[in-house]
Amino acid sequence: MQRVNMIMAESPGLITICLLGYLLSAECTVFLDHENANKILNRPKRYNSGKLEEFVQGNLERECMEEKCSFEEAREVFENTERTTEFWKQYVDGDQCESNPCLNGGSCKDDINSYECWCPFGFEGKNCELDVTCNIKNGRCEQFCKNSADNKVVCSCTEGYRLAENQKSCEPAVPFPCGRVSVSQTSKLTRAETVFPDVDYVNSTEAETILDNITQSTQSFNDFTRVVGGEDAKPGQFPWQVVLNGKVDAFCGGSIVNEKWIVTAAHCVETGVKITVVAGEHNIEETEHTEQKRNVIRIIPHHNYNAAINKYNHDIALLELDEPLVLNSYVTPICIADKEYTNIFLKFGSGYVSGWGRVFHKGRSALVLQYLRVPLVDRATCLRSTKFTIYNNMFCAGFHEGGRDSCQGDSGGPHVTEVEGTSFLTGIISWGEECAMKGKYGIYTKVSRYVNWIKEKTKLT
């Protein structure tokens, strides 16, 4: 034993070699072989497995989906700052455009905790909710729209109204504003409101030439003092309507412009014939205590009207009353817009006519005020429907199939267009061939041609 100890002390290297040989010859039971080890760690190889990531292109799944990435790591994937920024906006807080917040056709661009709407022409605001041009839906104005110097929408209202708090709607500024039905039992019968379409306001006024200088022999019209197929109006439903009495009662109609003036057809009036105007009328054979009678003290036909040349060209006249009318729910003026808007309103496509005229061709006159909704007829169809001249200051309205029309005794009465609950004068009943005849239409004086003249002559002093 002493000898062994001496050998170990003198030859430590020998001992180490012996131990190493023993270990190498022993069977290893701690580690699995290569094949079995792979069965336990069965993990798919990654895209760049075996390579240094710093030297390969980034992978979106590896960089940002398996674990949260930084902007720089995302930049490695896209290799483009702009594309990385677009991805980053949604990656950080989701897609803010998912709810489609942009209105009126706006395009949404996502941002971090926010979004941006790219608005089409005519709109602005956070969600493109603000109209900035009158060309689109009248700028959301209830009545009139004008573009300011910086191309912003400025709404306005006709006389007797003021802008509401929203700067879009119009509200009454006087007790009985024009064009409004205020009798409670008839307010439910107000005709369907007309909503502004998209309009090209630059070209809204037709490029028409008034044929002022045409000389033409007097034409022989049949029954051209021209509501057939209409309905009984309720008291106060058309408070701007008046009836004219002269040699015979209810020979023509008219509309209240203001307390002192009536507008009617020029062919209705004769110099030297006494005319009485009755406002607030409903049943011409009954006294309903809503009527107001006034005498006409002055007749002003349009300066281009000449019955000797043509009885229905420039067929418009103004009547001055001896005493002002007292405005109330049964006696209310009709609204008159400017030339541009009167023309736009007419193009809405349908209007209402009213009167006490004959209820059928050569038949009896109506006792109760009649009204009828009539569609506008395109000019080409209008011209083809008659052998008589249709001037540019006239328009056609009615039904091709016949059966409904204005008729004798309705002449001078109103053709009105309702705009968001307020009625505007767009025409004056003038003439036609018979009444409600198939293929024939009622012919009306186009008020847009005469609004400046009306307003100039009827100013209240």
Results as ranks from 00 to 15, higher is better:
Ala308Thr: 12
Cys157Arg: 00
Gly21Met: 15
Cys18Phe: 15
Ser365Val: 13
Ile390Gln: 10
Ser423Glu: 03
Val174Asn: 05
Cys117Ser: 02
Val451Ile: 10
Asp110Thr: 15
Ser184Thr: 09
Lys455Asp: 03
Leu211Tyr: 10
Ile40His: 15
Glu171Ile: 12
Tyr22Gln: 08
Arg373Gln: 15
Ile17Gly: 00
Thr264Ala: 06
Val447Glu: 00
Tyr305Pro: 02
Phe144Pro: 00
Tyr201His: 08
Ile454Ser: 01
Glu320His: 02
Gln185Trp: 10
Gly13Ala: 12
Leu319Thr: 01
Thr16Leu: 13
Lys387Ser: 07
Tyr305Met: 02
Asp33Gly: 12
Cys128His: 02
Leu321Tyr: 00
Ala9Cys: 13
Phe224Met: 12
Ser114Phe: 06
Leu383Val: 06
Ala37Glu: 05
Gly254Leu: 01
Leu211Gln: 12
Ile336His: 00
Glu323Pro: 04
Ser184Phe: 12
Leu369Gln: 07
Ser448Asp: 14
Lys293Thr: 13
Val4His: 11
Glu61Phe: 05
Leu32Met: 14
Gly398Asp: 03
Thr85Ile: 08
Asp33Glu: 07
Ala308Arg: 12
Arg162Leu: 10
Val4Ser: 14
Tyr330Ser: 03
Leu19Cys: 07
Ser423His: 12
Ser406Pro: 10
Lys234Ser: 13
Tyr115Thr: 04
Gln96Arg: 15
Thr271Glu: 03
Lys362Ser: 13
Gln219Pro: 11
Asn135Arg: 13
Ile344Trp: 07
Ile334Val: 13
Lys51Cys: 04
Glu193Met: 12
Trp453Glu: 01
Phe345Val: 04
Val451Tyr: 05
Glu82Lys: 15
Gln216Lys: 05
Leu244Ile: 06
Gly357Met: 14
Cys335Arg: 01
Ser255Val: 11
Val202Pro: 11
Glu285Phe: 09
Glu418Arg: 09
Cys141Thr: 00
Pro333Asn: 04
Gly179Gln: 00
Ala436Gln: 14
Val181Thr: 15
Met8Phe: 14
Leu52Arg: 13
Gly254His: 01
Cys178His: 00
Cys155Val: 01
Ile299Val: 07
Ile210Met: 06
Ile316Thr: 01
Val248Arg: 13
Cys141Met: 00
Leu103Gln: 11
Lys68Val: 13
Ala337Cys: 02
Asn343Ile: 03
Ala436Ser: 09
Phe176Gln: 06
Ile299Lys: 03
Ala279Ile: 01
Asn36Gly: 13
Lys45Pro: 15
Cys134Pro: 03
Asn310Leu: 04
Arg62Ile: 13
Cys97Asp: 02
Thr290Pro: 05
Phe399Val: 13
Asp249His: 02
Tyr312Val: 08
His400Arg: 12
Thr215Phe: 07
Arg373Tyr: 07
Phe144Gln: 02
Cys102Leu: 00
Ser184Asn: 15
Val368Met: 14
Asn113Lys: 12
Glu79Thr: 14
Gly413Glu: 02
His400Met: 11
Pro175Asn: 07
Gly409Pro: 12
Phe221Ile: 10
Cys335Glu: 00
Leu211Pro: 09
Asn59Gly: 06
Arg83Ser: 13
Glu231His: 11
Glu73Cys: 03
Thr290Trp: 09
Asp405Ser: 13
Ala380Glu: 13
Lys455Thr: 08
Asn393Val: 03
Val451Arg: 03
Thr186His: 10
Glu165Trp: 07
Gly21Asp: 03
Asn213Thr: 06
Cys102Glu: 01
Arg226Thr: 12
Leu189Cys: 07
Arg3Glu: 05
Thr215Lys: 06
Tyr441Ser: 03
Arg46Phe: 09
Tyr201Leu: 07
Asn222Asp: 09
Leu32Thr: 10
Arg404His: 15
Cys145Thr: 03
Leu163Tyr: 00
Gly230Val: 13
